[in-house]
Amino acid sequence: MSDRSLVARGHRVLHSMSLGLILVTGLAAIAYTTAAAFGAVPWLTFTAVFGEYTVPNAGMVTQIALTVMLASLFFFMPSAGRIMSLERAHRDFRVSMEDVARAYHVCHTADRSGVFTMSSEFDAVRERLAYLRDHPDLDTLEPQIMELAAQMSHQSRELADIYNDEKVARAKTFLRQRQEEVERQQTLIVEAHHNLRDIRKWSQQVELEESVVASQLSQLEEQLEATLPGLGYTLGKDSAEIVPLPQKPAAE
């Protein structure tokens, strides 16, 4: 039992004891004051002084006032009893609904597993009720609770058929396969990004090397153009073609 249940039970016990104490004390005060009024028993007597004023018959006045106050508490006891009855009924209703929910869960789980095969309403409810009665965890439940849970399970049989264990397992398998396919595609995308980065880096490196080679060829061509005239040659239209320069006529 939980601490909250223990506190609630203790509160109810103290409440009942308080009501009983008020009832007994009030009846005793009324009986004693009535007997004192008829002279059967003595009145309460004591001396009360307020400043310089002495209150006469202070004991009798106090006794009558306490009796009236205790008697007035009787008018609150019916409402307190009704509140306790409502609390008790609410507690019993909550316990009953918890039992119904527990029995319905057992029956609905069995229905999702395909345990029940009857199609007509009467046979289906009777089959579910027999299953609940034979269940080891529900042997302490009342027959009315089992019957209500069986009827609720019959009303939700379409829901149990839609979400039966086989269909749910098949849906989970399908979703698991889709998840694996998504993870596989993500892996391929990551690899593609890595390959693209490598190709781009390689391309930039090749372009840099080509520009270096082109610069070196241009420098070689300039140096060749500057050197060939001294040797009597020059470059033709095609830079790869070297032609001799025309010789000057010898002086006579």
Rank of each mutant, 00 (worst) to 15 (best):
S120E: 10
V115D: 03
V106Y: 02
S113K: 08
S120G: 10
E98Q: 15
F122G: 13
S119A: 12
D111M: 05
D92S: 15
R94T: 09
V106A: 02
D111R: 02
D99V: 05
S96L: 14
G114P: 01
S113W: 10
F93S: 13
V106G: 00
G114R: 03
R102T: 04
R102N: 06
V106H: 02
S113M: 14
V106F: 01
V95A: 14
R112L: 03
F93W: 12
V106T: 01
A110Y: 02
F122T: 08
V95D: 12
G114I: 00
H108G: 05
C107V: 00
E98Y: 06
V106P: 02
V100D: 14
A110T: 04
T117L: 11
M118A: 14
E121R: 05
D99S: 12
S120A: 08
R94L: 06
T109A: 09
D99F: 09
C107I: 01
Y104T: 03
H108V: 12
F116K: 01
D123L: 04
H108D: 02
R112A: 01
E98T: 06
S119W: 14
S119N: 11
D111Y: 09
D123Q: 12
F93T: 07
A101C: 15
D123H: 07
S96K: 15
F93I: 06
G114T: 02
T109L: 10
F93C: 07
D99C: 06
D92V: 08
R112K: 05
M118G: 13
A110R: 00
F93M: 06
S96F: 12
E121T: 09
T117F: 13
D111E: 09
H105R: 06
T109C: 08
D99T: 06
S120W: 07
R112V: 04
H108C: 08
D111V: 03
C107S: 00
A103L: 04
R94D: 13
R112Q: 04
V115W: 06
R102G: 05
C107H: 03
S119M: 09
V100E: 15
E121H: 08
D123W: 05
